[in-house]
Design a protein around this nucleic acid. Structure first.
Lengths: 251, 251
DNA sequence: TTAATAATGAGCAAAAACAATCAAAGAAAA
DNA sequence: TTTTCTTTGATTGTTTTTGCTCATTATTAA
């Protein structure tokens, strides 16, 4: 029996959500426990199972997954951006935070300030749920479950009635040609309303999203007051971007 | 049984907001109380549950409760009411769920139905966050942090634009004299809008709130289509109430 | 309030499971 | 064939899990 066969069979055994033990598998396949552990490790690396002490369980029945501590990509970069963003916010201001992982970091950094925060992100609202300083306004709308964001007609209507000192906008891609873009049509429409609702619109994106394109245009770069990003972009590209929009690098 | 399995199962047990006790879990899983405590600690660190003295409660429910009070009062009664409420909801309907511990139980019980749920409770929205069947609409507004409810002008405006097949209303006190009451002025105004937005308005309160009064009137009993409560009230009082509003007892 | 009772957290020790390492066996490539 | 690479099993020291005790803390009753 080859190693691949063995792994395939282990997966089959676990298909119905049954937990398996290292000792049992070792006996069943007549190999050492070391070998089984190596197999399980590989399967876990492939995110096919969840290892436990003594064996493994299927990913679904693992509680780790229900906790959405999914690793944030470019965490350090976003942290830098958040720090720079917070420095721009003064006490007493009204700030809008768009849904996104970067804006979520900004939310954490904003805690304790005497400000009013409006958002369409359930997660960001939660961040302030135990902060007595911050007044929170949540926009209504249809719940986009994957990112726990509120979007759609109702959200747009509410945005049309509000105005903020600063809007921190998130996006999936930024380009001099198409401007600011995102893959979702409905979201794009809602973000367009955010841009309109801000006295000052600050686009916060890590460097991996610069010079990229997504399907739906939100707005052109000229409508953005400031692009706040991290120091992961080379100087030539920063200069190129600066022709279209004011750029600030967070270090 | 692996530790991971145990933790996953504990979570499942608590899924519907049911509180658990250390002693019970210890017996059920045949491990020491120390082990259970360690499990609960981990789950708490992962923000999946909220520990209490002697046990734990799911985070969603715990946020509904005041800082001191960590257990749902009249949990069984609310469970009964929830069951009866769900029987009244048909597929395809649009349902509004007010903020409250009873309505939260209704939310848990409604999962999996093909319906549209609107709510002003962040916690209720969360309940459906991983349910692909249920379409969720969250009302916007100011966040009342203690109960994570959205209230105020913006909420009222949104409610004025919407209409629901069924509105499940929560309240703090019900009385034939003052009708339905609640201690918070702004909340009362928002609840008044809920009453207006429903084709059928169903007041869900456990028996401890009957024949009580709170400061602000929401509406008179005649504006309520049905009062749904548990079987904890004596027959004489049920009859008295029935003079003012249709009463249904959940058993 | 104070006393009593219950639950908790920290520390410890034993058992089980683990990762890391290395050498042997087998397969693949030169 | 010899050499190289992969897979495997055994060994060893480390980590994890668990149950127990005991001092501390929280809750309840008086």
């Amino acid at each position: 029996m080859f190693a691949e066969e063995r792994k395939a069979e282990i997966l089959q055994l676990m298909e119905s959500g049954k937990p398996v033990k290292v000792g049992d598998l070792s006996q069943r396949f007549e190999v050492s426990e070391s070998t089984i552990r190596r197999d399980l490790q590989e399967l876990e690396n492939a995110r096919l199972i969840q290892r436990t002490h003594g064996g493994a369980i299927s990913v679904q029945s693992s509680f780790e997954l229900s906790y959405q501590e999914k690793e944030i990509r470019f965490y350090d970069e976003k942290q830098k951006i958040a720090k720079a963003a917070v420095d721009m916010v003064k006490d007493g201001e009204t700030v809008f935070l768009d849904t996104g992982t970067t804006t979520l970091q900004i939310a954490f950094a904003l805690r304790g300030k005497s400000i009013t925060v409006a958002t369409n992100s359930m997660d960001i609202a939660q961040v302030f749920a135990e902060d007595p300083q911050v007044e929170v306004i949540v926009l209504g709308g249809s719940l986009r479950k994957s990112i726990r964001s509120l979007v759609g007609f109702l959200t747009n209507e509410m945005l049309a009635k509000l105005h903020f000192d600063k809007v921190f906008l998130a996006a999936n891609a930024v380009d001099s040609d198409l401007g600011v873009t995102t893959p979702n049509l409905i979201e794009a429409e809602t973000k367009r309303h955010m841009v309109k609702a801000g006295k000052e619109v600050i686009l916060v994106v890590d460097h991996s999203k610069l010079w990229e394109k997504a399907m739906c245009q939100i707005c052109s770069l000229s409508e953005i007051n400031l692009l706040l990003t991290d120091d992961g972009l080379d100087e030539a590209n920063v200069k190129r971007l600066s022709q279209y929009v004011q750029v600030r690098i967070a270090e």
